[in-house]
Design a protein around this nucleic acid. Sequence first.
DNA 1: AAACAGCTGGAAAGCGCTTTCCGTAGTAGT
DNA 2: ACTACTACGGAAAGCGCTTTCCAGCTGTTT
Lengths: 366, 366
Amino acid sequence: MAEPAHPAVPGGVGGRPPTRNRSGGRAYVTLQDVAREAGVSLATASRVLNGTSQVRADLRERVHAAAAHLSYTPNAHAQALASSSSTSVGVVCHDVSDPYFAAIARGVMRTAAEHGVLVMLASTFHDPSREVEYVAMLRAQRARAILLIGSGFEDRGWERSMSAELDPYQRTGGRVAVLSRHRGLRVDAVLPRNREGAAALARALVDLGHRDFGVLVGPRALTTVSDRLGGFTEALAETGVRIPPRHIVEAPFTRDGGYAAATELLRRDRRPTCVFAVTDMMAIGALAAFRDHAVSVPGDISIAGFDDVPVVRDLTPSLTTVALPLDAMGERLMGLALREPSTRRSRVERISGEVVMRASTAPPSA
Amino acid sequence: MAEPAHPAVPGGVGGRPPTRNRSGGRAYVTLQDVAREAGVSLATASRVLNGTSQVRADLRERVHAAAAHLSYTPNAHAQALASSSSTSVGVVCHDVSDPYFAAIARGVMRTAAEHGVLVMLASTFHDPSREVEYVAMLRAQRARAILLIGSGFEDRGWERSMSAELDPYQRTGGRVAVLSRHRGLRVDAVLPRNREGAAALARALVDLGHRDFGVLVGPRALTTVSDRLGGFTEALAETGVRIPPRHIVEAPFTRDGGYAAATELLRRDRRPTCVFAVTDMMAIGALAAFRDHAVSVPGDISIAGFDDVPVVRDLTPSLTTVALPLDAMGERLMGLALREPSTRRSRVERISGEVVMRASTAPPSA
DNA sequence: AAACAGCTGGAAAGCGCTTTCCGTAGTAGT
DNA sequence: ACTACTACGGAAAGCGCTTTCCAGCTGTTT
């Protein structure tokens, strides 16, 4: 009873205005307004609109009519707060405009749509710290799940700060799913068989007659890079072929990176007969570089990529690559995140790539 | 650190549990928890974390320490609800995996990041009704702004239902910005000069010597299609050239649509010497179709597109097109949406395209 | 020394909705 | 007709945070 009666209650205690109207012309229609218009209680209106429980038909009608008439839209924030649930998931990628991501995102978006889920998308532009920052934002948004798309980093500091965000998130019921290997994160994952795919490609290329290889790689700290490069060189080693270090060129993980790396490779000693770019985007850049330097593909040099992003089949020459079902991977990733956490253990779905020989590779010229 | 056992729980309603803990293991750390740990009031904790007003240094320290220690993350929903503001914007596009959109999205995402804004992305997969549905969801999320990317429809019904969502949204302070012409919507817009661009392209092609044209178009109800086709045919008409109706082929607005349209065109009477695909994606499909039918480009037939999506410069032959600064358009679109509504009138920013002649066009063979 | 700003920090009123807890009515059972 | 249920509908308690409104201090001012 120690409640001190405040004399000056904002808004006035006496009569609550029937219509709420903030300044600035803003005036959201609230469920309260709908209930009043329909002549029912707040609770009933809520029940009708959510179909939570049975409500007599005539009341139901009235509520719906009122809602439509007032053009009512529930406040998702209020809903989320009250029900402590959310219908949005967060997706973090490196770059929306990268066809690799775009293709995966397609599957993600479709699956999200099927489940009535809204996707919050963040682009890190290859900045690891921004990635962590975004996860924090998504956590604040109480996203139902967080999807990390794109290679993880082999970096202790990154692992630690990422875990610092992800662990509390998962502890409070958040679901996390990642594409590609992310060391140190105990989360569900969709994992392309990068090593195996690269190995299969290597064997196919050797079968074609090549013995002299070059590889265009992205930053070594990316798990995708080390896995693909590792699988490729290992399979080669098994057939007795070694790649000289000067034929492994590192550059950014992009089309322009591929262009630069290929140009650099041409400058170096003893040109290889076949080049493996660890991603299609780099291969596209390499193709352009070869064209600009009047090196014919596959006449003078063969080139192969990895991923099979949609556009590579339309290049001339069309690109030999390891095809990954990108769209389906996005689907499964979202599926993983949406599925009930059946077990405590993190689930892993492995995706096989398939070598697709196209016009960019041919036997080496004698 | 000697704080009183119980900081005098307000209201003295029985006993409020010191720690909130829902079942299911979920237990979000709340600002209340932080305040308790720091031995300050809820208000003070809030003030510290938001920098809203001055707080004594030692208290500030304690709050920050407590927040870090508990790994506290504010509940964005609660913040949004209490402050009736939101830091996310909604973006609706047709298809994330379309390079045209992807390029624009890049600019959008970058600008969003600069403003600390989270982007909620929705893909309609070319379904107009889904578009309206998403706008409703975004409205419910109280997105600060809604961006509509992609051509509008010339359709009364669509206009009406879209307006039914957008009008109340704008009335309550929501900002809307669209890319491309959207009839019937009174909103800010970034408008590519489609007519002018297509006209300039037409003239360039005529200058090359072409008189016999074919056009590959998307659904006529799309404003982008009608504008580009209109500009193209008009400019042609001015030079006395007419396109026979059988040389205008309609197909879906995609790579495969372009392939189908080109194939169909080849089947029809009297093949034109030059083909204009109203988007680059359709042109890419057409290029593939010509290749598959052994029609050499530009030897047998010339082809030009529109948009200049990043990949077309890497095709062989590289594609002649009307270049739009897609990334910058995305930037400006987001800029428009974030800028304070200075005037009541809707703002329009027009973007000029530039004809880029590349290898896919050449004078007609004699 | 009295009086007055100027700062700080706490209490509490919402933000709009969900959901539990009850009371009331309607229906059925005997 | 009377009790025992069941189905509905309303009141109200939060969900976690922001933001007024005040009270308590300290440092000035005259």
